[in-house]
Design a protein around this nucleic acid. Sequence first.
DNA 1: CCAATATAGTTGACAGATCAACTGTTGACT
DNA 2: AGTCAACAGTTGATCTGTCAACTATATTGG
Lengths: 158, 158
Amino acid sequence: MKEGKSSVVEQPARKRLLSSRQQQAAVSILRTTDYLRRFCSRVFDRHGVTSQQYNVLRILRGAGPAGLPTLDIAERMIEQTPGITRLVDRLEAKKLVRRERPSDDRRQVLCYVTKAGLDLLSELDTPVRNKANEALRMLSDSELAELIRLLDRVRSGP
Amino acid sequence: MKEGKSSVVEQPARKRLLSSRQQQAAVSILRTTDYLRRFCSRVFDRHGVTSQQYNVLRILRGAGPAGLPTLDIAERMIEQTPGITRLVDRLEAKKLVRRERPSDDRRQVLCYVTKAGLDLLSELDTPVRNKANEALRMLSDSELAELIRLLDRVRSGP
DNA sequence: CCAATATAGTTGACAGATCAACTGTTGACT
DNA sequence: AGTCAACAGTTGATCTGTCAACTATATTGG
C-alpha cells in the first residue's frame, strides 16, 4: 500500500498550491464537470450516442418542426464545437436527423429531428433527468438555485 | 439579420424546457466549464500544450523530485482519462517529461518533469492565473468561497 | 450588371481520445 | 517451487475533434 494516497474526489493537499481563489474555483468547476460526465456517460453509451449528439438532438427538438440551420445548432450547444458538420453527419447516418437545403437560401442546410430521433430522446429523458438528480442530490433546492445564480454570473462576464 | 437570435452565453427561453432544477444546475456547470476552457485555450495553444498536458506537468511538479507512477498521475487529473500513456508519450517526445522503470518494482514507470518542463510551467503560471482571475472576475471573494463550497459538496456525493 | 465581400457549410489532413486485448511483473497461496 | 490472480502499463483499431483551406450561394456597392 502506498502512503496516504488520497481519493480521486479530493486533494486537499494540492489545493494549497493553487495560488488564487479564482484558480481554486476554476478547478472545482472543471472537476465537477468531469464528475457529471462520468455520471451520465453510461446512459449515453447504452443508447449509442455521445453527450454532444444528445445535445444536438435536444436542440433540434426544441427548435420544433421549423428545423434549424446547421450553424445555429453549433451556437446553441453547451460545448461549442467547430465540428458541427460531422457531428450532424453522424446523426444523419443513424437516421436520427434529416437535412434539407431550402430553396430560399441555398447556402443554408436546415436540420430536423426525425421520428427515430424523437423516440430516442424520449427514451433518454427520464434516465438523464434521474442521473442529474442523483449527481446533484447533495444540494438542497435553495443551494441549487444559489449555484445556478453564481455560475450564470460567472458567464455573464465577458 | 435573423429574428431575435440570442447570444451564445444565455438562452433563457431554453432553460424553461429543462425539467428539473438539477438539470438546470448541471447545464450551468457544463456551460461554465466550456466558458473557462475557451478562456484559457489561447494561453495553452500559444505554448504548444493542451490543458491536459499542462495538468500532467503541474501534477508532476507537485510530486517533486520523487516522481510519480503513470497511473497515479491519471488518478490526480482534473479530467479522468484512460489515455494517460499516450498523453505522457507526447510530453516525453517534447522533452518536458522523463520516464524511468525503477528496479524495485519493474511494473511501474516513474515520471518526472524535466528542467524544460519546469521552465514551461513557470512561463505559464502567471498567464494561467491571470486568465482564471479574469474569467471569474464577476464573483467577489465570498461568492467564490461559496461556489467552491457548493461544488465540493456536489462531488462529495457518490 | 458585375466584381468584391460576406455567409453557410464542407472537406482533407492530422492530432487526440477511447476501448478492448495484450505483455510483463509481482504477490499470494498452496 | 509453481500456479494463479492482481497490478501497471502498453498497444492496435477505431472513432472523434480541430484547424485551415475550400465550394457554393447571397448581398452590396459602383
